[in-house]
């Protein structure tokens, strides 16, 4: 790069035209997709636009999205947590067991939160203390946590939850707004603030971009990562409370395969799987899109396993399409 002669120059804070680029961002694309799907759905099915139907539709994504917020931060920091669905299973099992011991609803919630946190702490310690790759650690704990649920339950189920416990998954705060949906909105705001407005969030981006440089710059890398795994465990615990409350029962296979849907949601939301970039806004949009698609399929009576094919295709294509697009553009330019 050629150096200009020595003159003190004023460097502006912001590049010109950045606001124009926002319009071209991944999030704007997601908004367009969301509107499209919304429109298609409302034409495809007369039942779609009913407020209560829409409200029911939110249950398709709220629990997974709660986990996805924390997962987004883990992925931005360059790690991954594949054990989230197993944490949900173990947490649900722990609550189910506590319920059979006669715990009341507040105590069950405490058990749920504590189990989630404990699982997150185990992941966090293995990754930060022993320096193990998170992908293998969480494949291991994925097996371990759900394995414990299987040991406890075998082919049985816990179903004896107190009546008041049903509120978290079935209650409504006001009109069509369910407790879960309000929780989703609240945590969306909380995580958006945490990631985009705080020192902690900045540290997460720095670690994901260049962990060594972040460490040298005084970022407490191990502490931040540990906190992230703790948060993921906590959110999985909260999701488990909602899901268990909604289903009213616990089997060891509960939330099977959710890790895939959560990771898909995060990646669809524009978070780089290699770490370093992504926004909570994108994840919120991705959650809405996936929820509406699932709901739309549901209205068309498409079975669940076919939906999972769709999610698998979606996961690969949201990463592949931008790559193919830039390649095509470059070829056109030549």
């Amino acid at each position: 790069m050629a150096e200009a002669p020595m003159t003190t120059r004023h460097i502006p804070d912001r590049l010109q035209g950045r606001s124009a680029r926002v319009l071209k961002s991944w999030e704007s694309l997601l908004v367009v997709v969301a509107i499209l799907i919304f429109t298609v759905n409302s034409f495809a099915s007369p039942y779609f636009l009913d407020p209560w139907n829409l409200s029911d539709a939110t249950f398709n994504f709220t629990e997974k999205a709660l986990i996805a917020f924390a997962m987004a931060m883990v992925v931005i920091s360059g790690e991954i947590d594949l054990s989230v669905a197993s944490i949900v299973a173990l947490t649900s099992t722990a609550m189910g067991y506590a319920a059979t011991q006669g715990f009341d609803t507040p105590a069950l919630v405490a058990v749920g939160l504590a189990t989630g946190l404990a699982c997150g702490a185990i992941n966090g310690l293995l990754v930060t203390r022993l320096g193990l790759p998170s992908i293998v650690v969480t494949i291991g704990t994925m097996s371990l946590f759900r394995g414990i649920a299987f040991i406890v339950l075998g082919d049985q189920a816990f179903t004896s939850y107190p009546a008041s416990f049903a509120y978290f998954g079935q209650g409504y705060v006001w009109w069509v707004f369910s407790f879960e949906f309000c929780l989703f909105l609240g945590f969306a705001l909380f995580y958006a603030a945490l990631l985009h407005l705080t020192n902690f969030g900045r540290a997460v981006y720095a670690i994901g971009n260049n962990q060594t440089a972040a460490l040298f710059s005084g970022v407490r890398v191990a502490r931040v990562k540990f906190t992230l795994f703790l948060l993921t465990g906590l959110m999985s615990g909260i999701a488990a409370i909602c899901l268990t409350s909604r289903l009213g029962s616990t089997r060891p296979s509960i939330a099977l395969g959710w890790e895939l849907e959560v990771v898909t949601m995060v990646v669809l939301g524009g978070v780089s799987i290699l770490g370093g970039s992504g926004t909570i806004g994108g994840v919120v949009l991705a959650a809405l899109i996936m929820g509406m698609v699932t709901f739309g399929f549901g209205l068309l009576n498409v079975p669940g396993i076919v939906m999972s094919i769709f999610i698998g295709l979606l996961l690969i294509s949201v990463i592949a399409l931008p790559i193919l697009y830039t390649r095509l553009k470059r070829r056109m330019a030549h």
Binding site: L132, G140, T141, S143, L144, R146, G147, F150, I151, G154
Partner: peptide, 18 residues
Amino acid sequence: SPFAQMAISGTVIIIAVA
């Protein structure tokens, strides 16, 4: 119980990778 196998695999993965 054969149901313990999953948990054992998980534990062994973690120990082995460590």
